[in-house]
Design a binder for these strands. Structure first.
Length: 594
DNA sequence: GCCGTTTTCGGCCCGACTGTTTTCAGTCG
């Protein structure tokens, strides 16, 4: 059965073919459908099985035509239309358009003139200096493509937010303290707190533009300077690209909106402006331009965007308000309904950074952690936490030296001692007894119920049998959640970003079970987990299932990851009330008592 | 090809940059 990612690629390539043919609008339609398919949580095959052709039509950007394509692909594994186009133009578009500066049209020209079908052909053509001779190409174009081909080997990977964060924060503070800027903000996917980042966009108002650019491009952190100017680009030594865009104070609001929302959010915002007879850009709001055929006047305002009558905004609030909606938190700016809800003034009050009061998944040197119980506790106190739960692995996770029932009891005694010590020295902090127990293949747990019953917090997690069928996996997990000792389902999907796919289960069923058995789902804040992810969090919130945010710390410095879990919760529209460990330890334990 | 608190037809985001042009097309974010 074809996977979403394969189907999305074919749709995208179809769009490319239409682009080559200079068809208007179709390319965008296919691209949009491809994006939509790619971002699905469920497999198309699943949606099709459950809802048939109508199920496909419910997807954003998928109408009659594309739904038919998808149906054909699912049923036969092939698409006649695609194959016909491919026969006429046997070009590997995905490959060729991955080269910077080459889009579908250029690829089409290269095929028509030079029979270039793929990267190999392209390299040969460039080496033979054949490009420069094509009309409309020239020497410079050939050089640029040659360069882009070189760069391709070291192609741009994405970075985990949690690992890049401290580097960028340091840079941000440095820039702010440099005295060169009156305003500065890290925007883009960083401000939206996406799981991974491609590059870093910084927006700033400069005191003296020239000096500011000079300062930025001469930073010792800058390994390479790619561009100098109102838009400057540097590459740090670790390879991450940082762009600095200098804007006038007067259009700060519009620029901040523009450089924060993702593509879809920005497009929707501009549509909102159009509905009001306006045009939104990074400079502000202008009256919509006259139709293009009106000559000089129309052309000028179409290009510069700096024509008369521009309404500028100093704050983001002003931009959102003037388009008839409330200010939208950056983490929500992904066109996932936030604009419509903001128009009704119904955005939820999201959980805030710092709202989490305790950490309920912490490993120590009793298993695969690096620090002792006391060291972890002290570090948590340092960060202002009120409690932590020690949740070392259990016995079937042999590689970590998982604890058995006897060891768990021993550890409990040590925790009692520590808590007594805190009480005597009047430290308001509590260590909870817990465990991260393994869900076995059949859904039973690897620690006896009598032992689990004495713990404060029991987290259950999947560490084996990742490849069970959807049905078996769902059944197995529900059985584990039905154990009355289980309080939290740890890192539910087990995905590891850029390394391991999520396991397959029926999330709706899991949510029902979690609600029925009063089990909280974890938002694991560890940078390469962030599990649950945003859409699932939103589903859980809508289903009324409670969540917790934990770091899964294996060392003291990991305890600071909590903010990335809070960010993830915000991206999933969670409010403080949805997150159990925003409660005091007493209230939390009362909830877990069931 | 998709989509609709004005529309089942007639629209479809905006601007910068680059290279090749002498007024514009393609690519990118």
């Amino acid at each position: 059965m074809m996977k979403n990612i394969e189907i999305a690629q074919i749709l995208r390539e179809l769009g490319g073919y239409y682009e080559m043919k200079n068809e208007p609008f179709k390319p965008r339609a296919y691209e949009k459908a491809a994006d939509s398919v790619e971002s699905l949580d469920e497999q198309l095959s699943q949606i099709y099985r459950a809802g048939g052709f109508k199920g496909l039509l419910t997807l954003a950007g998928v109408g009659q035509g594309i739904a038919e394509h998808i149906e054909e692909l699912l049923q036969t594994g092939r698409l006649k239309k695609y194959e016909a186009l491919k026969r006429k133009m046997p070009v590997n578009l995905t490959e060729l358009t991955s080269i910077g500066g080459i889009g579908a049209k250029t690829a089409g020209e290269l095929y028509k003139k030079l029979k270039v079908k793929n990267l190999k052909d392209l390299k040969k053509a460039v080496a033979g200096h054949k490009l420069a001779r094509i009309k409309g190409f020239g020497k410079k174009t050939e050089e640029n493509i040659a360069k882009a081909l070189d760069v391709q080997g070291t192609f741009t990977k994405r970075y985990l937010l949690g690992y890049i964060y401290p580097i960028i924060e340091k840079l941000r503070v440095k820039l702010e303290n440099s005295g060169k800027f009156t305003k500065l903000m890290v925007g883009g996917s960083y401000r939206r707190r996406q799981e991974t980042l491609g590059d870093i966009d910084i927006l700033a108002v400069a005191k003296h533009e020239k000096q500011a650019i000079e300062y930025f491009t001469n930073l010792p952190e800058a390994g390479r300077v790619l561009r100098r100017g109102g838009l400057s680009e540097i590459k740090l030594f670790n390879g991450i690209q940082v762009d600095l865009k200098i804007v006038p104070e007067s259009s700060w609001g519009a620029a901040a909106v523009y450089f924060t929302g993702d593509l879809a959010h920005n497009i929707k915002m501009r549509k909102m402006a159009i509905e009001r007879g306006l045009k939104l850009s990074e400079y502000g709001l202008t009256p919509a331009s006259p139709p293009p055929h009106e000559g000089e006047e129309g052309r000028r305002s179409r290009r510069g965007g700096k024509s008369r009558g521009i309404a500028k905004f100093k704050t983001e609030e002003e931009v959102y308000n003037s388009l008839g909606m409330d200010w939208i938190p950056p983490e929500l700016r992904t066109d996932s309904g936030e604009i419509e809800v903001a128009q009704k003034g119904k955005l939820p009050k999201l959980i805030d950074y710092g709202d989490v009061r305790g950490d309920l998944q912490v490993q120590t040197n009793w298993t695969d952690g690096t620090a002792s119980i006391e060291e972890m506790a002290r570090a948590a106190i340092e960060l202002g936490r009120e409690y932590i739960a020690i949740t070392d692995h259990t016995k079937t996770l042999a590689m970590t030296g998982g604890l058995d029932e006897k060891k768990i009891r021993e550890q409990g005694k040590e925790i009692d001692k520590m808590n007594a010590k805190f009480q005597i020295s009047n430290v308001k902090f509590r260590i909870l007894k817990g465990a991260e127990v393994n869900i076995l293949k059949d859904g039973t747990l690897d620690i006896a119920d009598s032992t689990l019953a004495k713990l404060d917090v029991v987290g259950a997690s999947v560490h084996s049998h990742f490849k069970l069928s959807r049905e078996d996996q769902t059944k197995r997990i529900i059985r584990a959640l039905s154990n009355p000792n289980v309080d939290i389902f740890f890192h539910p999907t087990t995905r590891i970003i850029q390394r391991r796919d999520p396991i397959d289960f029926d999330f709706v069923q899991i949510l029902k079970a979690a609600k029925k058995y009063r089990v909280a789902l974890e938002i694991n804040a560890y940078p390469d987990r962030l599990d649950l992810h945003d859409k699932m969090i939103r589903q859980a919130v809508e289903a009324g299932v409670k969540l917790v945010i934990n770091t899964d710390a294996h060392a003291t410095k990991h305890l600071g990851f909590i903010q990335f879990g809070e960010a993830q919760a915000r991206r999933g529209w969670a409010r403080r009330g949805d997150i159990l460990n925003t409660l005091s330890a007493d209230a939390l334990l009362k909830y877990f008592k069931k």
